[in-house]
Amino acid sequence: MEVKIAIKRSNAQTNGKAISQAYSIEMDGNRTLLDGLIRIREEQDPTLAFRGSCGTGFCGDCTMTVNGKGAVACRTKLGKALKKADDGIIEVGPLKLAKVAKDLMYDAENFHWQKFKAVEPWVDPVAPPAKGENVVANDEVQDLRAVMSCTQCGLCDQGCTVLVVDKTFLGPAALTKAYRAVFDSRDSRTAERLQKLSMRRGMWDCTHCFEASEHCPKRIEPTDRIFALHDKAIKAEAGPPKVVHHYKSFAASVKAHGWLDEARLAVETEGFTNVRGLMKLLPFAVKAGIKGKHPLPYMLHKKRPGAEHIKRIFEKWEDNGK
């Protein structure tokens, strides 16, 4: 079938401005977009720049924007892409959140690898066994393998709502990579890692909006991995004080009353002794108070009828964790 592809192109001469160039190839719709791009480069236009390596979805090199959405080109079938295309032309461009290098190539060093390195994703072993391999449960291995099936394709980062406003955020790909080290029982630096990952731009800047999980082509569920990091950090009290207060207060409120006491949460998040933080709450509280958009003061907070049962659930969970 005839496949029309419009590619956003830019290079040094265009001063970073993209121009759209249309190509037409004759190809089976069952073929992939990467196959199509290779055909264009080989037969029609050797000046077209794009990345691609394994061609099977294992290396993560050929990520780009297809019809407005992030996609891995070697796992995108031409026929399907054509169906989703406006006017019967597949629109292809570089990844949107990364800096463009040329045509479909982007600045991978800053987009992927600097952050990958920043989480220090290697295992620093505890004292290895005297002989042979470490004994590890297969369940742990399977969980880590799911995480390690990440190819650093960057689609989760591309979909991330925080990276849109702050490019310095570590992002779901790097945080998922961090999970790999934090949850590897052979690693010796768990507490230190959780501290480092709790720095500004780290795991607490994630809004857990599930965009990352939606966009991950390998079903790694990056959002769930970040949740797991949060849980672990809270248990280890490794987060920034304000965040730990926030989480602890949230849990304490639910444990005590069965539900959330927002006024208490706000105050405890800042910390009772943090006068400056508490002062900051005041304008909102006063403004909201005047308007009537304000929670009850926590002294008046009522227990829910089933609160004691919820408290029991908490106690059992805490016992299980011990």
Partner: peptide, 23 residues
């Protein structure tokens, strides 16, 4: 449902919020 707990709001660990929600 007056007698129902907080969902956890993605803040509580699922280990404890799943039982509360199951309830």
């Amino acid at each position: 449902m007056e007698d129902a707990g907080c969902t956890g709001a993605g803040i509580l660990s699922r280990e404890v919020s799943d039982p509360i929600n199951a309830r």
